[in-house]
Computed example of a mutant assay.
Amino acid sequence: MVNKLNIKAYSSEIERYKGSVTANWQSGVATSGTAGADLVTIGQNDDGKMIDSLLVDLSALTAAANISIRLYQQVNGTEKCILDDDYIVGADPQAIPVINSPLGIYEAFRVEAQSDNALDNGKAIPYEYTLEEK
């Protein structure tokens, strides 16, 4: 479930979204075909937006698990992985600022997550992001 809040800041309106996804983060298969699961898709095709921030909360996952966060964006009509970072639950911050500066998107922007620990299957990963019109 995704909740949307509108915030007026400066001269443009910022939309804030919050949600959570429960999935098989270790044994599942994400849209890309790699292990893990889809966490969130931001925006839609042919609709310019600016992602101001994206936070992913890993605190409910198993301590010492290695979590991969992958970002996908279309390049010339084909979805490509543009970022693949790893985090360790308990060693890295509980809420990961995956995006913390404005990023322009014109097509759907997808986020996947993967855990190396089977105990994370069936657990929820919360997220929050902000968007503004381009």
Rank of each mutant, 00 (worst) to 15 (best):
M1R: 06
N3S: 09
K4I: 11
L5P: 00
L5N: 10
K8F: 07
S11Q: 11
S11V: 00
S12A: 11
S12C: 06
E13H: 06
R16A: 14
A23C: 01
N24S: 14
W25N: 03
W25S: 01
Q26M: 05
Q26C: 12
S27K: 12
G28M: 04
G28Q: 04
A30R: 07
A30Y: 05
T31A: 14
T31I: 04
G33C: 13
T34K: 15
T34P: 00
G36C: 10
G36T: 04
A37N: 02
A37Q: 00
V40P: 02
V40Y: 07
I42M: 13
G43H: 07
Q44L: 09
N45M: 09
N45E: 07
D46A: 13
G48M: 10
M50G: 12
M50H: 05
I51D: 06
D52S: 13
S53V: 11
S53W: 01
L54Y: 11
V56I: 15
V56L: 11
D57L: 11
D57R: 12
L58R: 13
S59F: 04
S59E: 10
L61R: 03
T62N: 02
A65M: 01
S68H: 04
I69H: 07
R70A: 13
L71I: 13
L71P: 02
L71C: 10
Y72C: 10
Q74C: 01
V75H: 01
N76I: 02
N76F: 03
G77T: 00
E79K: 11
K80H: 07
I82Q: 05
I82C: 09
I82M: 08
L83G: 04
L83S: 15
D84C: 03
D84F: 02
D85C: 03
D86T: 08
Y87P: 04
Y87T: 00
I88Y: 02
V89P: 02
G90C: 08
D92E: 04
I96E: 06
I96G: 09
I96H: 06
P97R: 04
N100E: 11
S101T: 12
P102Y: 03
L103P: 00
L103Q: 12
Y106T: 12
E107P: 01
A108H: 03
F109H: 09
F109V: 06
R110A: 13
R110N: 11
V111E: 08
A113M: 13
D116S: 12
N117L: 08
N117T: 13
A118N: 06
A118F: 01
A118C: 03
A118H: 01
D120M: 08
D120T: 05
K123P: 00
K123G: 00
K123M: 03
A124W: 03
Y127L: 10
E128L: 09
Y129S: 14
T130S: 15
T130I: 10
L131I: 13
E132D: 14
K134S: 12
